[in-house]
Amino acid sequence: MARKRGFRNIVKEFKTYFGDGLLDDWQRLCRDVGLNGEYSSITQCRKALRTVHVNIFDLLDAVKEGRTPPHFGTAGELAEYTLETGRVYPKKAAKKMGPVRALLRMIF
């Protein structure tokens, strides 16, 4: 029951945040997670994002607050945090939406 009261539509939030998936959207995502490089293609953005371990809920909260989300040193540390906090992005939705997949890590 508590889950329903506190439920966030994280899929909708990310889709609204990300936009149409144009290069500008990808570059903004890179900046928002704290990557400072020059990324001239979506492919470059995707490759750079593979090196970042952030929780998607934390990312969206950080963007709203004008700060960079906390980073984790490894995918394992991110998985542990994600499971402890219950801030898990729904796997089913991730398969449908390309951009969010760049941030997803195996946690189970």
Rank of each mutant, 00 (worst) to 15 (best):
G76M: 08
G76L: 10
M1R: 12
L60D: 06
N9S: 11
M106S: 12
A48K: 08
Y17V: 03
S40R: 15
D58N: 10
G66A: 04
T82K: 00
N9Y: 02
D61I: 11
T82C: 02
Q44M: 13
L59Y: 04
M106Q: 14
A102Y: 00
E65Y: 05
I107S: 04
T43V: 14
R31E: 10
E77A: 14
N9H: 11
K91W: 07
C45G: 08
F18D: 01
L59P: 03
K47C: 03
A94L: 06
R5W: 07
F57K: 06
D24P: 06
H53R: 08
N55Y: 00
L59G: 01
R105Y: 06
R28S: 13
E13R: 10
H53C: 12
R28V: 05
A79S: 15
K47E: 12
G19N: 06
G19H: 12
M1E: 07
T43E: 15
F7L: 10
L49M: 07
V33F: 01
D20G: 15
Q44D: 12
A48R: 05
G73D: 12
G86H: 04
V33L: 02
A48F: 03
M1V: 12
R67Y: 03
L104A: 02
L78M: 10
E77H: 06
N36Q: 13
R3G: 09
T51R: 15
S40G: 06
T85V: 03
N55G: 04
P69F: 07
E84T: 08
R5K: 11
A48L: 05
K15S: 13
P69S: 08
K95Q: 15
V54W: 01
F14H: 02
G73F: 04
Q27N: 08
D20H: 10
E13M: 07
E80N: 09
G66M: 11
A93F: 03
V100P: 03
P69T: 11
T82E: 05
L103K: 09
R87H: 11
K47S: 09
L78S: 03
H71E: 05
G98E: 14
W26K: 04
A79K: 13
A75H: 09
Y81D: 01
I56Y: 00
V100N: 00
L22Q: 11
R5V: 11
K15L: 03
H53M: 07
C30M: 10
G34C: 13
Y81I: 01
G34I: 10
D24V: 08
F57D: 03
D24L: 15
K12P: 00
F72C: 08
W26R: 04
T51G: 07
Q27R: 15
R28K: 15
M1D: 07
A75K: 14
K47W: 04
D24E: 15
